[in-house]
Design a protein around this nucleic acid. Sequence first.
DNA 1: CGAGTCTTTGAAATGGCTCAACTAAGGTGG
DNA 2: CCACCTTAGTTGAGCCATTTCAAAGACTCG
Lengths: 181, 181
Amino acid sequence: SASANGDDHIVGLLFPSDFFGRLFAEESRFAYEAVTDVTLCAMNKSGFERFLIDHPGVEHEMLKAKLDELDAVREWAAITNGHTTMQRVATLLFVFSLRSRNQHREHGNLSSHVVHVPLSRRDIADYLGTTPETLSRNIQTLAREKVIRIINAKHFELLNVNELVMHSGESREDLERIAAR
Amino acid sequence: SASANGDDHIVGLLFPSDFFGRLFAEESRFAYEAVTDVTLCAMNKSGFERFLIDHPGVEHEMLKAKLDELDAVREWAAITNGHTTMQRVATLLFVFSLRSRNQHREHGNLSSHVVHVPLSRRDIADYLGTTPETLSRNIQTLAREKVIRIINAKHFELLNVNELVMHSGESREDLERIAAR
DNA sequence: CGAGTCTTTGAAATGGCTCAACTAAGGTGG
DNA sequence: CCACCTTAGTTGAGCCATTTCAAAGACTCG
């Protein structure tokens, strides 16, 4: 997750296996903050830059990854711009559900529609461009409508995925593409 | 400018000398639309991709450019998220003023604070994540406060740059960094 | 000089924000 | 192990910016 506190804004989330750090520049314009325990692989910045330059094949893969990332950021920007808070909340829940499903698969727990969102309400709100209060109200509305069940602050059970997709205002294909990055 | 019409959204603007097109992917997720007459340099996509792979030094420069672009998109996303419409309008005008100042410099017309925004109100509104009506009201407010003078729909004279910066809610340094890309 | 499009303006409706209080949860020290 | 304290989340009510719907100017182009 990049940049969080104060009245700054969260401009992205990072998931396991994601790369971060600002290559080929003095410093990153954004801050990175962990919301869970993390295992990370750190390397010497200039050494890694050197390595990329010396191994064009690897740098080529890095370029492709960054091009994908660029698309994803633009896509997310389009979503946060023209949608209501409810649509953003629904989109976020669905995207996280696809991600956690992938993580649960290895536990053989495929049928479980439990979504884990490790962010605080404030962080989610910052990411979605709203306030914790408005976010909470929308989550509670979804629960009241039996679209989700709130297990606890960070765990949700999806009771009606179709309804969730409806609320997101996106087609299911678009949502899956967004989640895929 | 990328992606415009309907209820789609504008996720970026392109200026002279900018590169566009989605390398190393089947097709672009976004559409590109010209709002002015343009002179463009087109090249064979797969040929150019081949060229990049064969010339790691050039591909390296491409990577650096895309990394900058990524920062710029994230920065813009942060702006459109947490700011009022007025702040976004002021930011846009200031950024365009820096850009057109650079263009006017060569005409020896340095002192002129005339900003040219070739987009329609609808396009600007889409880009800023608002409606043409709200956008118009904010522009008119700036004019009423003598911060700008509306020459015509696409040309504005900046009467009070300091006030404009105030309205943007950003520091002048931040604005200049944003404009620089 | 129209016909059509773009922009502006008005008035009403509303979604989201702010401020404030209340509840739940987690963590600490006695 | 429990009372306490602190933080996070929820709920309520009023307010305000923005949207929406509608219509009146402007500008452009044939």
